[in-house]
Amino acid sequence: MLDALTVVVAVTALALAAWCGYAAYRDQPTKDWHFIGMAVVTALALIQLIVGVVQLARGEDARDGTVTFVVYLIGAFTAVPAAGFLSLTERTRWGSATVAAGAVVLAVLQVRLYDIWGG
């Protein structure tokens, strides 16, 4: 795994969480700009997924198991899009809070991915 990419994904996810959390605090639903932020974070998670799979294909091993590592990669990739989809169904402040929670989950998954890989 690329440690720098893991840090970038975690930091952007936390920035998205803060941004959407502030929108929830101000009683605002998710807006188009929030979805652009979600797309950026999701793109970074996709890059991480691709890098992780390529490293596994090259013969490198995750310390705590390949299956666990791949499952966490997929979970990290789907955390923010799932929260974004849920925020579309709840067009109140709770939609923004849902995205904030999903972004925090992504940041926590980054720490776990780092541990599983052998960090």
Rank of each mutant, 00 (worst) to 15 (best):
M1W: 04
D3A: 11
A4E: 12
A4K: 10
L5E: 09
T6I: 12
V8K: 15
V8L: 15
V8S: 12
V9Y: 04
A10L: 03
V11C: 06
V11E: 14
V11W: 00
T12S: 13
A13G: 14
L14M: 14
L14F: 13
L16A: 08
W19R: 14
W19N: 07
W19C: 06
C20S: 13
G21W: 15
G21Y: 13
G21C: 13
G21I: 01
G21Q: 12
A23R: 15
A23L: 12
A23T: 07
A24I: 04
A24N: 05
Y25A: 03
Y25F: 08
R26Q: 15
R26T: 11
Q28C: 04
T30G: 01
T30L: 11
D32I: 05
W33Y: 08
H34K: 02
H34T: 02
H34M: 05
H34F: 06
F35T: 05
F35I: 06
I36N: 04
M38Q: 15
T42W: 10
A43E: 14
A43C: 10
A45E: 03
A45R: 03
L46E: 11
L46I: 10
I47E: 08
I47K: 03
Q48F: 10
Q48N: 12
I50C: 09
I50P: 04
I50W: 11
V51P: 08
V51S: 12
V51N: 14
G52W: 07
V53Y: 00
V53I: 14
Q55K: 13
Q55G: 09
A57Y: 01
R58M: 13
G59E: 09
G59H: 00
A62P: 02
R63H: 04
D64I: 01
D64E: 15
D64A: 15
G65F: 01
T66Y: 01
V67P: 00
T68S: 09
T68F: 04
F69T: 02
V70R: 01
V70Q: 02
V71T: 03
Y72S: 00
Y72F: 13
L73G: 00
I74L: 02
G75T: 01
F77L: 06
F77N: 02
T78D: 05
T78A: 12
A79R: 08
V80M: 05
V80P: 05
P81D: 09
A83P: 07
G84Y: 05
F85T: 12
F85L: 15
F85G: 14
F85E: 10
L86C: 11
S87N: 08
L88T: 11
T89E: 03
E90G: 06
E90M: 14
E90P: 03
R91Y: 10
T92L: 08
R93I: 08
R93G: 10
W94D: 11
A97V: 07
A97I: 07
A97K: 09
T98I: 13
V99L: 15
V99Y: 14
G102T: 04
A103Y: 11
V104A: 09
V105E: 02
V105R: 08
V105I: 10
L106C: 09
L106Y: 08
A107K: 07
A107I: 02
A107Q: 04
V108W: 09
L109Q: 04
Q110S: 14
R112K: 14
L113V: 00
D115W: 12
I116N: 01
I116R: 01
G118L: 00
